[in-house]
Structures are given as structure tokens and as C-alpha cells.
């Protein structure tokens, strides 16, 4: 495997609110190779979006990165000034958001917005910029792209707007794109088209992709590796296929077992008891312990992440140990 383009170590992003310190991201480490797609899976409040924002240096007050390192092509991002970060954002690393309506300016044409995005990092003439924009819009599957440059966002459907947002993220051929649930608001038929295209684009351009999602099925068909987050931590990470076939962390195993497809029609689903914990009042030790049927007294201490080959998990009593012995 080639050298990682993005390397995150023990990232911690905390929010200092009136109600207390919210440890939104509290121990996230991973590497990403060029052209690789990683799925970042978790429920609301698991810290997956804040992780994405941290990578781009977009965490606002009262939050800040309190610990850890983010290396993009060997450059440490956490110590850069705002100006230096801005120079990299959009050029070396960019983001696609869930809601394309909120990210596009309704008062500017698509062409104008793409020109602005180009101008932020590069000097290109109007004609060259238009040519680049047209090329990218075509690449993300927008028909008659040259003519659509003069259109305003409201003239596009939701799916087409998200394609425009993807094209803008791709403008400078960034090394990494962070995509935060970009297809959640879209219909399944449009989602399938976009997933299909993103996979090809990552392979073609060598851009690495972090795909944030709550949907295991979406990432399982897209990402080559997965990181599962719970209460601000990555609780399990590894190659998609082996992780899903043979989960180690009881949370991952529980999530997979609870999917409707896993039970015969009409039969009760395997459910994880309890509710997702509030980040303000996390239980001491393993945050999943109160909902976990494998928890013991040992789980009152916080487990460190254990690595075995390309797999990693944060659990004292991982699932499927027996298989590991025979293998």
C-alpha cells in the first residue's frame, strides 16, 4: 500500500458549552491511501460529522481541537493558522455537505460559483475557467453542462444540485474529499447513480474519499474500509468486507443484527437496548457498556483500541474470538 495521503492520530475535538464539555470527538485515528474510500459510520451524536469538520479546520466556537494530529500529504494541519488552512481548504481537501441547497448561493449562477471556487486558489481566465467547470460538470453526470453554467441553483433538482456540489469539491483535484451524508436527502434511484459515479471518480482521479453515513448498506457498497463511531470514538475499524462479515465490537455486531434484512419477515428484530448516551453525561469506562450484553466489571475502565493486522477494535470482550483462534 502506498504512503497515506491523510493520517489522523488520536484526534480529540471538544465543545466547551455552558452545560459542560462535550467531547464530540474523543479518540479518532486512521490512515487513508490515495484513491481509497473510507466509510465513517455512526448514529447522530457519534461525532462523525465533527470529525469531518475537524479535518477541514471548520470547527467553530465553542469547539476546538484539543489534541491529536492531522497530517495531509505530510503537513500537520492542526498547527496551521487560519490563513494557511484557508489556502488548503478547497484545494487539497474539500467537503460535500448533506444539503446542497444550503451550500449553493441562490443568487449566483452555477458558472459564477464555480469561477469563484477556482479563483480562490488559481488564476484562470474566464474561458479557461468555464472550460474546467464544464469538464467537471460533465464528469459528474450533468447533461449539456456548458449550457447549464448559466443556470441558477433553483433550476436544478436535488440530485443535480448535489452533483454540482460534488463538481465544485473536485475543481482543484483535492487529495481528500470529506462527504457528509451527501445522498441522505436524495431518492434511492438518484443515490444509486451518485454512489456509482463517486466510486468511479475516486478511482479515476486518485482522490481519497471519506464517506460519512449512518447507513451501513450505503457504505458497504462503496467503501473499501470502514470506521464505526460511537460516542466520539472509533470503536471498530477495518476492511469493509471482513468487518461486516465478522464484526468484533458488540456495537457493530448489534447494528448489523438489527437490520430488517437479517430476520425473517415479520419476526422480531434483534435490538440494541437503551438509547444513545448524551455526550454530556457519558458513563465512565466503555461508553457502550450500559447497552452491551457482553459487559463485565472490567468495562468500567475505558478500553484502548486493539489492532490485529488491518483490523482494530476498542473492546475488552470482542465478538467472534473463537473464529480468530482457528484462523
Amino acid at each position: 500500500m502506498s504512503a497515506p495521503v491523510l493520517s489522523v492520530r488520536d484526534l480529540r475535538t471538544h465543545f466547551f458549552t455552558r452545560a459542560g464539555v462535550v467531547k464530540a470527538v474523543d479518540g479518532v485515528s486512521f490512515d487513508l491511501a490515495p484513491g481509497e474510500i473510507m466509510g465513517l459510520v455512526g448514529e447522530s451524536g457519534s461525532g462523525k460529522t465533527v470529525t469531518g469538520f475537524s479535518l477541514l479546520g471548520l470547527v467553530d466556537e465553542p469547539g476546538r481541537i484539543v489534541e491529536g494530529s492531522i497530517k495531509l500529504n505530510g503537513t500537520e494541519l492542526t498547527t496551521l493558522s487560519d490563513v494557511e488552512l484557508r489556502a488548503r481548504r478547497g484545494r487539497d481537501i474539500s467537503m460535500i455537505f448533506q444539503d446542497p441547497i444550503a451550500t449553493l448561493n441562490p443568487m449566483l449562477t452555477i458558472g459564477q460559483q464555480m469561477k469563484l471556487a477556482i479563483d480562490a486558489h488559481e488564476r484562470l481566465g474566464k474561458r479557461a475557467a468555464d472550460a474546467r467547470a464544464t469538464e467537471l460538470l460533465t464528469q459528474v453526470g450533468i447533461p449539456s453542462a456548458a449550457a447549464r453554467l448559466r443556470a441558477y441553483p433553483h433550476e436544478f433538482s436535488g440530485g443535480m444540485r448535489q452533483r454540482v456540489a460534488i463538481a465544485i469539491a473536485l475543481l482543484h483535484r483535492p487529495a481528500v474529499i470529506v462527504a457528509d451524508e451527501p445522498t441522505t436527502a436524495l431518492d434511492v434511484s438518484i443515490q444509486a447513480q451518485i454512489l456509482y459515479q463517486m466510486r468511479d471518480l475516486a478511482a479515476e482521479t486518485g482522490t481519497a474519499l471519506i464517506w460519512i453515513s449512518h447507513d451501513l448498506a450505503v457504505v458497504s457498497s462503496l467503501a473499501s474500509k470502514l470506521a464505526v463511531m460511537y460516542a466520539g470514538r472509533i470503536v471498530e475499524q477495518g476492511p469493509t468486507a471482513t468487518l461486516l462479515r465478522d464484526p468484533r465490537h458488540p456495537y457493530t455486531a448489534g447494528l448489523l443484527a438489527s437490520l430488517p434484512a437479517m430476520a425473517p419477515p415479520g419476526a422480531p428484530l434483534a435490538q440494541i437496548p437503551g438509547t444513545t448516551p448524551s455526550l454530556l453525561s457519558l458513563p465512565p469506562g466503555c461508553p457502550f457498556a450500559p447497552r452491551c450484553d457482553r459487559a463485565t466489571a472490567e468495562c468500567a475502565a475505558e478500553p484502548e483500541i486493539t489492532f490485529r493486522g488491518d483490523r482494530g477494535w476498542r473492546c475488552f470482550h470482542p465478538v467472534g474470538q473463537a473464529e480468530e483462534v482457528t484462523a
Binding site: 431518492d187 434511492v188 438518484i190 444509486a192 451501513l216 458497504s220 457498497s221 462503496l222
Partner: peptide
């Protein structure tokens, strides 16, 4: 047929990436 084909399914038994049946165009 097409709607069912475009739903992402949990891929457990393939180490290779799956193919999507996508519907052309939009509603």
C-alpha cells in the same frame, strides 16, 4: 424492479465492489 435494484444492499459476502442497477434520469 429498478427501484429495488437501486437500493444499496448490505454487502457481506463479496470482497469485490458491487454493481448498482441505476435508473436512468430523474422523476
Amino acid at each position: 424492479d429498478a427501484l429495488f435494484g437501486s437500493v444499496p444492499k448490505l454487502v457481506l459476502d463479496a470482497d469485490e465492489l458491487v454493481h448498482f442497477d441505476t435508473i436512468e434520469g430523474e422523476v
